[in-house]
């Protein structure tokens, strides 16, 4: 087991965002302008290893690298590797639309030709957890590896499960990732709308583990709740600009990343992230506290 102490506080020590019009948490907090260029994963992590990877996995690579670097866990060169033991870093990823394009394309091929015409390279991408496992494989993260596909609340649920596993002593830190790709299948599913085609990532750590490596705390993870009831106003709420499209499984992570951007800019009050709706599946909310407030 990893180090477990009485302090079960979980903190954010790294954050990254990649959206059209925003590639920093501060730009996200300020609200990205319309008309931003699409995210190019190769511009962030190079072309190597991107072939045969679906869009969600590529976005996940770029966000993982950026968040690990922001937390001081990965050097400028990927080859330098992690500055902490591989088993001390878990992954929790959230995406609802991640591999829908692979599923639809493989199905089209089977129906229009036969199974023999499908590509074996599509097999890993047909498994919905490919975003989470691929990030772990590329960056050598050997802790627990979890893919949350839980609808509108998925991103906040992912933060909750990362914090739960840290508090239970399963791992010291977790890379939490939320991505939603945009493509024809997603657009048809959304009835003409589009997905954000990007996302956000965080590094969550036990406060003890963060202190041991003298990491800078960027936010403190507060109470989380999921249920049918509406939640009371408990802090400032950040809104995703509508022109960016549907954030779905990335929505919660974008809100937490925006909260980090707000805290970085001097916000000292709590920020409340909310997702889902009480009359639908359920609603989730999560409180983020400024580093010095908790």
């Amino acid at each position: 087991m990893t180090a477990q102490s009485l302090d079960t506080t979980v903190v954010v020590t790294g954050a990254a965002v990649l959206l059209p019009g925003a590639d920093t948490v501060r730009a996200l907090a300020d609200g990205p302008a319309a008309g931003g260029a699409p995210v190019e994963p190769a511009a962030h992590v190079g072309r190597k290893g991107l072939r045969y990877k679906d869009r969600a996995t590529q976005l996940g690579y770029a966000l993982t690298a950026a968040a690990l670097r922001d937390a001081g866990l990965l050097g400028a060169d990927e080859k330098d590797g992690l500055s902490v033991p591989a088993a001390s870093v878990g992954v929790v990823a959230s995406s609802n639309f991640g591999n829908l394009d692979t599923v639809a394309r493989a199905l089209d091929t089977i129906r229009e030709e036969t199974v023999t015409a499908t590509s074996p390279m599509d097999l890993p991408n047909a498994s919905s957890n490919v975003v989470a496992s691929s990030a772990a494989i590329r960056y050598g993260l050997r802790g627990p590896n979890l893919m949350v596909c839980n609808g509108e609340t998925s991103g906040l649920d992912a933060v909750h499960w990362a914090a739960t596993m840290i508090a239970a002593g399963r791992t010291e830190r977790v890379l939490v990732l939320g991505v939603e790709p945009d493509n024809e299948v997603v657009r048809r599913l959304l009835g003409g709308g589009h997905a954000v085609d990007g996302g956000a990532a965080l590094v969550l750590e036990s406060r003890t583990a963060a202190e041991l490596r003298s990491a800078t705390v960027r936010a403190v993870v507060g109470p989380y709740r999921r249920g049918a009831a509406d939640s009371a106003e408990a802090g400032r709420r950040w809104q995703l600009p509508e022109h960016l499209g549907t954030a779905s499984g990335a929505h919660g992570l974008l809100q937490v990343a925006a909260a980090v951007g707000l805290f970085d800019s001097g916000e000292s009050g709590p920020v409340q992230a909310v997702a889902g709706s009480a009359d639908g599946d359920a609603r989730a909310d999560l409180l983020l506290l400024a580093p010095r407030a908790a």
């Binding site: 609802n96 839980n150 609808g151 509108e152 998925s154 499960w161 639908g280 599946d281 359920a282």
Partner: peptide
């Protein structure tokens, strides 16, 4: 899209609201 995961159906069938779908192969 609300039918990709199981929470929506579990709410309708069992009034369940603390539901989590993990897609972990």
């Amino acid at each position: 899209d609300s039918g990709l995961h199981f929470g929506t159906g579990l709410r309708e069938r069992f009034n369940a609201d603390v539901t989590h779908t993990f897609s972990n192969a």
